[in-house]
Nucleic acid binder design. Structure first.
Lengths: 338, 338
DNA sequence: CTGCGTAATATGAACGTTCATATCGCTGAG
DNA sequence: CTCAGCGATATGAACGTTCATATTACGCAG
């Protein structure tokens, strides 16, 4: 389609009887203009609906006002809790400071790093926003090596830029265990998923720390996969074992769903026979019976902090000296009992 | 931050001892080059890691290879089922044909249309992808008036470009009702949400058609809102009424969650005392007990078709003559009984 | 051996901005 | 009365491509 070219700066300049540069200044450095000129020009810009061509501006200035976000793979067998609210929050936060989010995904046969290189080389974006960052994430290493601005939801290594934000999962799970201890539970289990994602590890560490601090007896279980059947199977074993725990901390709400299913099949009543707490506060948790005690991630704050760090890196050229650890919010519901 | 300028076409040309245009041709019109030149140039491009600067290319050619997707508002009280799999599928489909997805959201105080105008005027994108399209969607009207390319997930009006793809909800719900009729149900209820979204209406129409076709007795209920409490309340009334229906068709899985909760509270056993079927196939449905019969949206096909139409509009300048209606896929699980 | 047509490659201009610098008009000190 | 200094605005160049067109190389008919 022949993209009918639109209003250019030249059109506005002609209409206003001034030069290009004056229009440019009206937008980028208004203080340079005589107030009356500014007002006249501004009105004209408004009337004609002029917007600087982003490509031309980018070509000259080298800045795109676009942030790339490599979308996490969203396995239907274990939906990424970030795809909903987090993405929203990121788009909103970025929008507030005049940036937009470009979704990225490696083409078939392309590595994550190649996908990053492609947009870097094509100068399509100013920076990257990474989520689901692993302990030794190749993307972080790659961007660090390339000296390209990024911010990460999830900790980076000490020798890498500390441009990260993360949730203090350890602390949150310690508090969860504390709630259980306060209700008199002595035998508590931790239910994890297979992956070695750092947040899983953190939650496990939190569990261990909580158990130690309160002198409880802790057991740990791992589901061989994230599919419903596998989850239910491992949880039934957990519930059937001798010395059945009286409380379970699931590393994520998704895992907790398996506990609900297994408990029903085993005739165990959650909230009465078994206390249950989890992590993520998926929207559906309100429908569970009894409703699930869980930890809500401060997605808005995380998004805002990440975007803030990104903008700082891009516009000032300075890298944050330290990461930012935000607390999770305990949402106490009946699943842990009265 | 001083964006260190990268490899330009000129660098490659110099290294290869040829002119700019030859490099450009190697990428955009390879058949014009002598095979040996092509090979030499291609290798050099590869070695130097050259990628055309997207801004420069866009400035000259007027095409950005970016599609804007105004993100649907994702109400946590009724999460948009599209935010997960659909977005994924769109990003993947677009990536395959060399396009990327830019997320868009009106700034505070900005209307949907203004947000569209902003990116149109700044020539940031080539086209729009709309989802959750309403019967008389102002965005569609606006883009039609502006003559700007778009494709819509959801039907447009007859006088607008028929560049849409939709799910044949009517047919799918008719089939759902058919399943219930075949199991001997005579009194069936339809549970809808408040909004007047076209897909809701379609599902309702499907229900009515199904009821008529099979000579059933149909009742319709509407939840006053999408919050869990409201859903459960209306469903309990439904279950408690005289002439309680033996089967319920919920307009969405989210609504069905309310039915599960209400049934538990009323001591009604889904699958035995009450057949239940819904729509969307949210990932969590596998955890429900009994598992929910529902309709899966062919998100991959929808995304592919939308992107295909978009590319056609952008690159050929032709608008599809007719919309595309895709069938939903019945996923039969125990909630409708044996 | 000349000249012509075509394939292959090269050159100049343009896309719409912003940057660096130049010009203009005015005020006020000498 | 001149001109330095400054605020306001204008001009030329450049960003890195691609398009339109020009030039060169080459095979082949006459």
């Amino acid at each position: 389609m022949a993209a009918r070219r639109g209003i250019t700066i030249e059109d506005v300049a002609r209409a206003a009887g001034v030069s290009r540069q004056t229009i440019s200044n009206a937008l980028n450095a208004p203080q340079r203009l005589k107030p009356e000129t500014l007002e006249r020009v501004t009105r004209l810009i408004e009337e004609l609906g002029y917007r600087p061509d982003q490509s031309a501006r980018s070509l000259k200035s080298g800045t795109r006002r676009i942030i790339a976000y490599p979308t996490p793979v969203d396995d239907p067998a274990n939906p990424n809790p970030l795809m909903g609210g987090f993405l929203e929050a990121v788009v909103a936060s970025a929008g507030e400071v005049g940036y937009r989010i470009l979704l990225l995904r490696p083409r078939p046969g392309q590595s994550q790093e190649q996908a990053l290189d492609e947009v870097i080389a094509a100068r399509t974006v100013d920076a990257f926003l990474l989520s689901d960052v692993m302990r030794d994430d190749p993307r972080v290493a790659h961007l660090t090596a390339a000296g390209f601005p990024f911010a990460a939801f999830g900790r980076t290594m000490p020798d890498q830029p500390q441009s990260w934000v993360d949730v203090d999962s350890v602390q949150a799970v310690i508090e969860l265990v504390g709630l259980l201890a306060a209700r008199g539970h002595r035998r508590v289990a931790f239910l994890a998923s297979v992956g070695a994602q750092p947040w899983m590890e953190d939650r496990r560490d939190g569990f261990r720390a909580g158990v130690r601090r309160h002198g409880l007896v802790g057991q740990e279980f791992s589901a061989p996969g994230d599919g419903p059947a596998e989850l239910v199977t491992v949880t039934r074993e957990l519930l059937r074992g001798r010395n059945r725990p009286t409380a379970v901390v699931a590393a994520g709400d998704w895992l907790a769903l398996g506990v609900y299913a297994a408990a029903r099949e085993e005739g165990v009543e959650i909230g009465a026979d078994l206390a249950l707490a989890a992590f993520d506060d998926l929207p559906l948790t309100a429908f569970l019976h009894p409703a699930l005690t869980t930890v809500r991630l401060p997605l808005q704050r995380i998004a805002r902090a990440l975007i803030g760090r990104l903008i700082q890196t891009v516009e000032d050229g300075t890298t944050p000296q330290a990461g930012l650890l935000l607390p999770g919010e305990l949402v106490i519901r009946p699943s842990i009992g009265p």
